[in-house]
């Protein structure tokens, strides 16, 4: 029973503090961690891109490789419209990678909070269907639901709900599960053993899930706007 209580306590989504306005606005822990991550990512981006030159230095090369990789990935999957989506997809990827790896510096990964993954999936789906209607027009966007054949139209309509659900559940489930496993291992063996396992569950799986999330979003997006 001791372990169960400890685990349950660790799994709670705590409220970090309350903003003393309008009778107190609670700020969840995931949001505070996100702020820390945003600050870190911004600092890193500023450090990488300050004083850019035509002939790149080492820092600029790293930034160019990263942005070039994301841009090329979007070009391949989204075609001519890549410019509008690359910054968002890239930001999402970077944020997820940082979020999933944040346990290494002792932070609770924000993606363990169901609100966060649901919010990200919601944004993705709004973007996918928004882009579809914006680029194909109202008629073309509706026509997309009858592709490749009108018979599958009901399934395509269902996908509006299924896609965000699968996106957020996949991400949440993976991060949550690895968090649970790591908490259990830490309770049982607090030293040394968690290191290689943490490398797998937090680093490897976390990065894979970040890639999968962005990759699927891009895939759906490419399908929607082609």
């Amino acid at each position: 029973m001791n372990i169960k209580e400890e685990l349950t306590a660790a799994l709670q989504n705590k409220t970090a503090f309350e903003i003393p306005l309008f009778g107190g606005i609670p700020v969840p822990e995931s949001t505070v961690v996100s702020w820390i991550l945003i600050a870190a990512i911004t600092a890193l981006a500023l450090w990488l891109t300050h004083n850019m030159k035509k002939v790149p230095g080492r820092k600029q090369m790293v930034a160019e490789m990263l942005v070039g990789f994301i841009n090329n990935f979007c070009k391949q999957n989204l075609g001519e419209h890549w410019r509008s989506f690359a910054p968002y997809l890239g930001t999402m990827g970077i944020y997820l990678a940082f979020a999933n790896l944040s346990e290494f510096v002792g932070l609770t990964p924000p993606t363990k909070d169901f609100n966060v993954t649901a919010g990200l999936a919601f944004i993705s789906v709004v973007m996918i269907y928004g882009a579809s209607f914006r680029i194909n027009g109202l008629k073309g966007g509706l026509k997309k639901f009858a592709e490749p054949s009108p018979i599958v139209a009901p399934l395509n309509v269902l996908e509006i709900g299924i896609r965000p659900l699968s996106l957020c559940m996949r991400l949440f489930g993976n991060v949550f599960a690895s968090f649970v496993i790591m908490e259990l291992i830490k309770i049982v063996v607090p030293a040394i053993v968690p290191i290689p396992l943490s490398l797998y569950f937090d680093a490897f799986d976390g990065l894979i899930q970040a890639v999968v999330f962005v990759f699927l979003t891009t895939l759906f997006l490419g399908e929607a706007i082609e």
Partner: peptide
């Protein structure tokens, strides 16, 4: 909070990372 945070991050990274680097490339 997620929407706000991600919106802020997208805005910042567009300004300091994706915008200038893509322009440079």
């Amino acid at each position: 909070w997620v929407f706000i945070n991600l919106g802020i991050l997208v805005f910042i990274l567009k300004k300091v990372l994706f915008g200038p680097v893509t322009k440079m490339l």
